[in-house]
Amino acid sequence: MSMDFSTPPYLLKNASVTRVMTQVLLALVPAIAVYTWLIGPAILIQIAIASLAALLGEALMLKVRRQPLAPFLGDGSAIVTAWLIALVFPPLAPWWMVVVGTLFAIVVAKQLYGGLGQNPFNPAMVAFAVCIVSFPALMSQWPNQALHLGFADQFQIIFGLTPRLDALTAATPLDALKTGLKLGEGQVGVAALLANQDVYGQFAGRGWEWITLCYLLGGLWLWQRKIITWQVPTAYIGALAAISGALWLYDPAQFASPLFHLFSGGAMLGAFFIATDPVSGSTTPRGKLIFGAGAGLLTYLIRVFGGYPDGVAFAILLMNICTPLIDLYTQPPIFGMKNGK
């Protein structure tokens, strides 16, 4: 049956989905290293939990869908999703929440839509959205860095072996800033709040600013390797910087600087690793610009005016919805048709 036609070209470039995914993982490694160093080894535990859960969920669904296991488990896409989930979840999130999020991402957001390449939404962001909606309290508890917890402590907290004391956790810098501004009711300015070095560090979240810088470097490496194109990150960062800059210039007391917004929360991770996901994102050159800019803009709006601590996940999910429309209206002109039409 399959033998009655030939399939040129016979020469093929040395490329595969696995190679693409492996390079994405490699680009995340420096950020993970800095994360481990600054925040603690909890992230490594979370990555392990999420990867296991992702592979398990993937294998289960592939069996149910009667698909071969080897090529799809080996393509690395589930691992990428797992790592991203681990990186966007609070590092001290209980293990079961990471498992629930990962399974939801793989089973519902990816496999139920047809598996690799078919998901309209970024699975990692779906996991984040589901968990922050379902477990808002747990999803906004970030490690209190003043405590300097070791591996054993973090391990015990993640697996529920020691009680989760309120003192162990704190809000993210973004959340803390928002609450601070709200409580201050116009009396306390951004500058005063940011002066607290224990929470905000040099220019964004304490410790987090260096991790986000690593995301930026990893992203630039991906661009250099031609795994991603320049459009989405540029538009994302540009839009986020533009709107935060404009409002910051308008009232620096009530709105944080672009630098703070770019280097806190998941902005850089979103710009280089999540919004660039080709499956759920736009694919045309102009479409990518619109997609990135939209995501950047929404990120800011949700962060500053919305009810959730960070807006990256919802912004990207919202833009995922628009992808088909964007692609439809941004088809590039083809060879020979640039002038006429």
């Binding site: 629930v100 519902v108 589901v130 909606v133 379902s134 477990f135 747990l138």
Partner: peptide, 15 residues
Amino acid sequence: YPGFLVSILPPGAFI
């Protein structure tokens, strides 16, 4: 039991 809130919210109804 911490509750799985998505289930009670409208998206849960769809799922």
